[in-house]
């Protein structure tokens, strides 16, 4: 058996090792590849740019820590952008393991921009059954959230006093790793008429382009790429930004090239093996003819 024919039987662990190396190396030696921006990301960025100070955006943390690699930079980008433009922010964390993570991200960003809890932002926290919570907000924030995350009744929070339901906010941004993103579109947008933008993992994005094309959402951040573009736009607008998602795109570039290389090598092996099988079949036929 030649080397090429052995390829299909290559130990998976070799592939895994190569993937790991390709992920780690660019972390230490950044390539600094340029980030072109796309319309769907610009959609959300421009929407928030156009909102004046004092408008209100609801940022929904609809992801658990496992996808923080993709969703984290998205959430923090949107949060910082709002703070930078003095837009008020309400935050929900409807995913089970989101509250602690969200709390840390909010408090860090708030400290950076000198934002005051209850005046510039309000962290509503977690309630079970996301779809029901999203529907109930349509009637009143106080139905699912009688208090904020810290236990303060909503009516004692200056920012929330005049906020009843979706009519009193300008935009919902759902940063999501699952179906909750869809519930915001179904209920907040379609039922209660509040504008919605989504920031989702790369895998989910393929599905949510339908909402973007049907103009059901004002913007879409697909995966780390979306987060990187968002940071690039913040950088372009002279705001403070973080490097991490941009560097992540270097890693992703290398990984994609590597996987393409795997596909090519896999196909070379596939054709080599098919050629061998054909040769053997031909030889067997010739042998049978010889016997006759």
């Amino acid at each position: 058996m030649s080397f090429l024919e052995k390829i299909p039987r290559l130990d998976r662990r070799v592939l895994y090792l190569l993937v790991a190396i390709a992920a780690v190396v660019p972390m230490f030696t950044p390539l600094g590849l340029p980030i072109p921006t796309s319309r769907e990301v610009e959609g959300l960025f421009d929407y928030i740019e156009e909102l004046g100070p004092g408008s209100t955006v609801l940022v929904a943390f609809d992801f658990d820590p496992q996808t923080v690699g993709e969703n984290g930079p998205q959430a923090s980008g949107v949060l910082r952008h709002c703070f930078e433009r003095d837009v008020n922010v309400l935050i929900t964390a409807l995913s089970q393991n989101a509250p602690g993570m969200a709390q840390e991200m909010i408090e860090t960003a708030a400290a950076e921009y000198d934002k005051v809890n209850g005046v510039d932002f309000c962290y509503l926290g977690y309630q079970p059954y996301p779809a029901i919570v999203i529907m109930s907000i349509g009637q009143n924030f106080r139905i699912p959230f009688p208090q904020d995350f810290y236990g303060t009744p909503l009516d004692s929070i200056p920012l929330m006093r005049a906020k009843q339901n979706y009519d009193d906010i300008d935009l919902v941004v759902s940063v999501a790793a699952g179906w909750v993103a869809e519930s915001w579109v179904t209920y907040a947008k379609e039922r209660y008429g509040c504008d919605v933008a989504l920031a989702v993992t790369a895998v989910q994005a393929a599905q949510y382009y339908t909402f973007w094309n049907a103009q059901q959402i004002v913007g879409l951040l697909p995966g780390l790429k979306g987060a990187a573009e968002y940071q690039a736009m913040m950088k372009g607008a002279g705001m403070s930004y973080t490097d991490a998602p941009l560097r992540g795109m270097d890693v992703q570039s290398i990984e994609h090239l590597l996987i393409i290389a795997f596909i090519v090598v896999g196909n070379v092996g596939f054709f080599a093996e098919r050629a061998r099988q054909r040769r053997e079949a031909a030889a067997a036929r010739a042998e049978r003819r010889g016997e006759r």
Partner: peptide, 24 residues
């Protein structure tokens, strides 16, 4: 731990791509 489990996807996508994407 969660992040580790999620990142397994990168490895599995590589091995699945290697195995399944054949010009049959």
């Amino acid at each position: 731990i969660y992040a580790t489990m999620f990142s397994l996807l990168a490895f599995y996508i590589a091995s699945a791509a290697f195995r399944a994407f054949k010009a049959r």
